[in-house]
Amino acid sequence: MATKERPFVEIDGVSMQYGGVEGTLALRDATLNVARGEFVVVVGPSGCGKSTLMKLVSGLWPSSAGSVIVGGQEVDRPLSVVGMAFQNPTLLPWRNILSNVMLPLEVVEPHRRRLRRERAAYEDKAHRLLAMVGLAGFEKRFPYQLSGGMQQRASLCRALVHDPELLMLDEPFGALDIFTREDLWAQLQEVCLTLKPTVILVTHDLREAVFLADRVLVMSSRPGRILAERTVPFDRPRSLDDTYKQDFQDLVHELRDHINAARKGGEIADAA
């Protein structure tokens, strides 16, 4: 049945209310599909429920209504095919950077079984990932010895290390300067071109969104739902120079108008 190109991620009419009936309604009736191997970027005003959406898809919270299906399987608990980078770096403070990055390998099968025998190979891989994000030489440091942006890069490595089929990145570059950020866009694009994971990425940076995405989704302000969706037509691999071309800029502006509309709409809804 999988041959009929069923979407890899199907989010259907999902709502999320924190803290019972009286609580915050963070998401309302969000619906979106993500094809296997697709790179989807979600943008939207702050507090609109993007992180909430990510947590629902990764199975950390149960949704209040609607269904989330990943790989044909209803998500009722976290799945190990998912690699998640949280909005905050959340490195374990008692582990050095290397063993933080290798944490998923100790949990997720089949790596868990192989880890003891093939430790050297896995360590190699972790070293490569860390070098890719510019953290070579920091493997033995502890998280408190790294800057916020460095921690964020390490947590990106942790999300990638077990070759997840579905990569969930919640503002993975939020704490980085523009140059490091652009560097990492290129790196991430390369990783995605070789490994072809399905990616859902949240960002506030519209250039980042257009550079990375196959499709950009714009969310309304809280309670969030998908307001608009734009397919990004540019060929891959994209270069940073492309981001200054006219059609790229036009797309960025179009998205910005959508978000502005979303923010205004949200204020009206909140006041009502």
Partner: peptide, 12 residues
């Protein structure tokens, strides 16, 4: 809870 979520998200 954030630290616990790191492991929960991996299906631990």
């Amino acid at each position: 809870p954030e630290l616990r979520d790191v492991l929960r998200a991996l299906g631990a």
